[in-house]
Nucleic acid binder design. Structure first.
Lengths: 228, 228
DNA sequence: GTAAGTTTAAAACGCTTGTTCGAAGGTCAG
DNA sequence: CTGACCTTCGAACAAGCGTTTTAAACTTAC
């Protein structure tokens, strides 16, 4: 009745990104891109299946529903991303000493950067989808995924406490809020100003350039003396 | 055939925010809120007209189409907001000397803050709508409004150049990008972390609290030495 | 070979969508 | 009152939506 595939990831670059790789993966890849470009509601199953070169009924056969497909698009990448961040934290904290703010920021930057440089562009698409879904405050993120990935926030909350012991809990929460908000939006390529004037930031989609300018800004914001 | 109303703004607080004020305004107010809560595509005209207490056909009669309604929701508030920012810039630059970074940031913060404190909550709704639409990269913002409000970006680009003369053009563009991205998201209340753990930032919706913590962070990021 | 699991095809389901239409009501000038 | 104009109303429109169902073809393993 259902799929249970853990197949390899073959290179697919055919005309309509169809043909190669199995049906489920093709659906996931196309859905990931279309959800970013048009949003969840404005993306129809017929658009997805048509561009993926599969039958309309395939989505409901493999995933059950459009909502479940959306959740599958997320779980495919979010788990590994957050696990990568926690692994970075583990490695940096191995010595037992407190991390510098820059080192702490980099434990998030590195996995996010790796995802953004995914040669199949699927990773970069996902970062944009994540940012978009966060802003849209989707029920999927509030309900299903919030419990699943609370370890991520707990680990970073503790690490920030140790890295910035001079700050109170409330001030720290605000700064984490600002820092992650900025990093998510930067990797998603949400250029607020380019909408008003064209190509304000050249090569804004080069992930290495993002990091080069983003990290000093975030670190400076986090390190500034307490305002209270 | 069409409306041409420039009426006053009566206080409306009836059971379903209907009854008082004219039909167009009621539609705009409800649409503003529903577009924020559910997004453009997921908000149907029937939801809007029902909550506004008007007939379904009223939207197409007064605004022409759903797209035109969305544009009207925007133009009602965006123009005054950006004009307010430019007026602040004019006032601060009156002396002829270069502005401090903090003063420059405050020329944007003050009008945005005033909008967020709109007693009818419509202004706060609009800031969230603006942020959401920026992330969604809506065609309306790319096409219609981008030409209309280019003065805003030009004025701020020049002001930032004068306030941070040590920075190159590219680096400056990045910092403006980060600063505005952060400020837009902060006023929109897009708390990235609250989705993972509940109530991470208490009273996150108090505009004064946002400013108190946001301004030092942004100013520090903008003021940090060049990374190149 | 048989059998099970996948995929395609085509059609239809009930439902919601944005939009349109003509008639009815309201207001105000003449 | 009459006539003109603006506004509202209920009903309907075609189109698209997610989903389900039928059946036939294909692949793969035993």
């Amino acid at each position: 009745m259902d799929q249970a595939n853990q197949t390899e990831q073959p290179k697919a670059n055919q005309s309509m990104e169809a043909n190669r790789s199995d049906t489920s993966t093709r659906i996931l890849d196309v859905a990931e891109r279309l959800f970013v470009e048009h949003g969840f509601e404005a993306t129809s199953l017929r658009m997805i299946t048509q561009q993926a070169g599969v039958n309309l009924a395939a989505v409901n056969y493999h995933f059950g529903s459009k909502d479940a497909l959306f959740e599958s698009v997320f779980t495919r990448r979010l788990g590994p991303l957050l696990a990568g961040c926690i692994a970075e934290l583990d490695a940096e904290e191995a010595g037992g000493r407190a991390l510098s703010i820059e080192a702490l920021v980099m434990t998030f930057i590195r996995p996010a950067l790796a995802l953004s440089k995914d040669p199949n562009k699927g990773g970069a698409m996902f970062v944009r989808l994540l940012s978009r879904t966060l802003v849209e405050n989707h029920r999927l993120l509030r309900e299903t995924l919030s419990q699943q990935y609370s370890e991520f926030v707990q680990r970073y909350s503790r690490a920030f406490e140790r890295a910035l012991p001079a700050l109170g809990g409330e001030e720290l929460a605000w700064r984490m809020h600002f820092a992650f908000s900025l990093m998510f939006n930067a990797f998603a390529g949400n250029d607020v100003l380019k909408i008003f004037v064209r190509s304000q930031v050249v090569s804004a989609r080069d992930p290495d350039m993002i990091v080069k300018h983003l990290v000093p800004f975030v670190v400076a914001g986090l390190n500034t003396p307490s305002s209270s």
